[in-house]
Amino acid sequence: MSARGGCAGGGAPRGTAPPPWVAAECRVLGRDEPATGYVRLLLEAPGLAARARPGQFLHVRCGGGRDPLLRRPICMHDAAPAAGTVALLVRVVGRGTAILAASGVGDVLDVLGPLGRGFDAAGGGGTHAGVHASAQGGALALVAGGAGVAPLAFAARASAGRTVHALVGARTAAELVSVAELGRWGARVRVATDDGTSGHHGPVTDLLEDLLARQGGGRASGALDAPREVWACGPLPMLRRVAAIAGGAGVRCLVSLEAHMACGVGACRGCAWPAAGAAGAGGCATTPSYVHVCRDGPVFDAREVVL
């Protein structure tokens, strides 16, 4: 990786200093196809790897021409500071991601990052840049839908010492990613597929309901393994359901959101998302307010946003 410059980017809407980011050219060190429709890229990125937090993203240029024009925000799938590498999981959904997925070993990707606020993998209420404060520690339930497993696998590996329940959903068995890795990192993995080809036959949210019902959750539960927090990433309908289930059980819920972005650094205000709360779009229709996925997220407390 060759750093082209650093920047203290972004506004600071909540009194927290925005995370610093760099523009870097990262060589592709490895490439594999862990599941149907997915490509995993291992990037040489020592400066980024040292600062990357689970849930943060890289803003990646696709090709270098003028069409497609914009970068694509991709959540980091893993970061290894010692090795100086960052992994990306790319699900091919359009032309930009198809170009990224076609990258080969030795190619160089133009990236900005690490960007945004991630999950709090530090535990115990860290206040450092890029991470949500006030983690409660204790057991953690991760709920992944499809490509949403990317940041959660990183979160699971970075949550050593916590009991981690990893609930992984996909349309079909061939599209399951990271199930074996999650197990190796000590997570208690359960799988759900829409077609029943692996694990539970049904939505992954069934597994969360089941887990919270069996183990209890939140402060009320005395069980050691009972999830004190739920971190979720996946399609919006799944996130809505996860937030409702977690809310019903009194468990804090963090969700990772996806939005189209131009700048990725808080400048263009393009990735607005309706904010919840008294002054938010959910509270009063005449005074909508928005958060921005690139700068305020992509990870939000589910209570901060209208899902």
Binding site: D67, P68, L69, L70, A259, H260, M261, A262, C268, R269, G270, C271, A272, W273, P274, A281, T287, P288, S289, Y290
Partner: peptide, 12 residues
Amino acid sequence: AGNPPPRLVETS
């Protein structure tokens, strides 16, 4: 507050 999302779309 600005306009409701989506606020951006990439075109050719």
